[in-house]
Design a protein around this nucleic acid. Structure first.
Ligand SMILES: NC(=O)c1ccc[n+]([C@@H]2O[C@H](COP(=O)([O-])OP(=O)(O)OC[C@H]3O[C@@H](n4cnc5c(N)ncnc54)[C@H](O)[C@@H]3O)[C@@H](O)[C@H]2O)c1
Ligand SMILES: NC(=O)c1ccc[n+]([C@@H]2O[C@H](COP(=O)([O-])OP(=O)(O)OC[C@H]3O[C@@H](n4cnc5c(N)ncnc54)[C@H](O)[C@@H]3O)[C@@H](O)[C@H]2O)c1
Lengths: 213, 213
DNA sequence: TTTATTAAGTGAAACTGTTCACATTAACTA
DNA sequence: TAGTTAATGTGAACAGTTTCACTTAATAAA
């Protein structure tokens, strides 16, 4: 898969929905490119690789395009996730309303302390950790957000894999890695390492300073 | 700059500190590679490009290596940042203790509502938004974490640039982009888009499902 | 000493993703 | 109907990274 293509596709997807809501029916690679901040040829190349075809001189039909991208992005199936560890960031994510507009739904939280979130402001139920396997199975959960203390991370990762979770958004600084066994199951792990992002920013500023003098 | 090199360097850096604390004095590209999950030649190539030299057959001196990386990562200068928007995620970040171990310090929060954080649990002062320019200048702030509602994002971005901030960690879903004018000032923007990460995970799961059948 | 071994160092090949240049086709124009 | 234009579609050149294969230097052993 081509590097940043996924990111571009999600951008196209968002833009297409906006254009559709504006009443447009077709779109040109050029406009889509402008809106996504990439060159028109990139758009065409992406679609070409994805076997999405447009009409010579007529651009792409937005409805068709959205339907194709729906399928490619997996939006034709429910996109549900659980949050494991409902502390500071976990809690913030539980209360975040912005996921719905992307079709993503947080269906449950798991924590050793189920009183971390008061019912009123947090509409998603929090269950005790013991019910993890039960909930994953009953709700057929594929994706988990991991926001537990770092020393708990790898144990819970194993346990979630075991229970059938295949996608992870890991906020702990632990670099989770799928074992040989898990690799076969195609476990997907995305790490969000906030401290690392900050380090990189400082690094890049540092470089550009050094280059200037 | 070579793509993932920065990320690898920060990994080496962490590992080196751990090895040092274990009492080791020298390290081989091989061991460093194992610990960082990359091949030994990658380590050597990275160091070669960074003009870091080791000793044939003797490996690299950890102290020298750390000193070099300190410089490259900008750790020889104070790494201070402010948080703009001390709500759910902003607040979580303010209360996070994990940055200190990477040498990063959050020195202030800015918010339109300064009562969002009670003094006891949050040791970092929160100032009213009006004092933004004053604080940036007085404390010579280079980096800001942006965790405001998305409709405020681009205005505040401009304002922070204007005040002299050059590095941004943006948690809003708005894709901030430096204007021509700002480009010359070498503004660094890192976007953390949590919804996008989730979308990508679902997408990748979807692909691997499609490939299997 | 001489030889063998170990690990750093590096130019070049291989690979990956992006950009370019141009062929293709549909629609419009005269 | 022939010619022009506006867009898609794509093989190939290009650029950036990673990996490979080999050279070099330092140390240890014989
Ligand atoms: N808060 C931040 O700004 C921030 C920034 C970067 C990284 N992180 C990382 O994110 C993770 C969470 O950070 P936080 O600040 O939200 O911590 P936190 O202590 O506020 O939250 C952790 C939560 O996990 C729960 N928990 C503990 N053990 C558990 C277990 N075995 N199973 C399920 N739940 C369990 C706790 O009850 C708590 O609610 C940490 O690994 C931290 O390093 C946090
Ligand atoms: N919470 C999440 O899990 C989550 C996930 C993904 C993205 N985001 C994004 O992060 C941003 C913050 O989200 P949140 O959930 O923390 O929101 P929030 O409403 O809890 O926090 C926003 C904070 O910004 C302050 N604020 C408002 N206008 C301001 C201004 N002009 N200047 C300074 N401060 C101002 C508010 O007082 C509030 O404290 C949003 O853009 C959101 O889309 C949040």
């Amino acid at each position: 898969m081509h590097g940043d293509m996924i990111i571009r596709i999600t951008k196209y997807y968002r833009i297409l929905h906006k254009l559709k809501s504006l009443g447009l029916e077709r779109v040109f690679a050029n406009n889509l490119g402008d809106a996504a901040g990439v060159n028109a040829t990139v758009v065409r190349k992406d679609f070409s690789l994805l076997k999405i075809i447009g009409q010579k001189r007529g651009g792409y039909e937005i409805d068709n395009l959205i339907a194709s991208l729906d399928k490619i992005l997996g939006k034709d199936k429910p996109q549900e996730a659980i949050i494991v560890g409902c502390g500071r960031i976990g809690g913030a994510l539980m209360r975040y309303r912005g996921f719905a507009s992307d079709g993503i739904k947080i269906v449950a939280g798991l924590d050793i302390n189920t009183h971390v979130c008061d019912e009123q402001e947090c509409p998603i139920p929090i269950y005790p950790l013991e019910q993890l396997e039960e909930i994953v199975k009953k709700k057929n959960i594929q994706v988990a957000i991991l926001t537990v203390p770092e020393q708990e991370a790898s144990d819970l990762f194993r346990r979630l894999c075991e229970a059938g979770v295949r996608g992870f958004l890991n906020f702990t600084p632990i670099g989770l890695k799928a074992s040989k066994d898990e690799e076969d199951k195609h476990i997907i792990i995305h790490n969000v390492n906030i401290a690392l992002e900050l380090e990189q920013i400082f690094y890049e500023l540092n470089i550009s300073d050094n280059h200037m003098l």
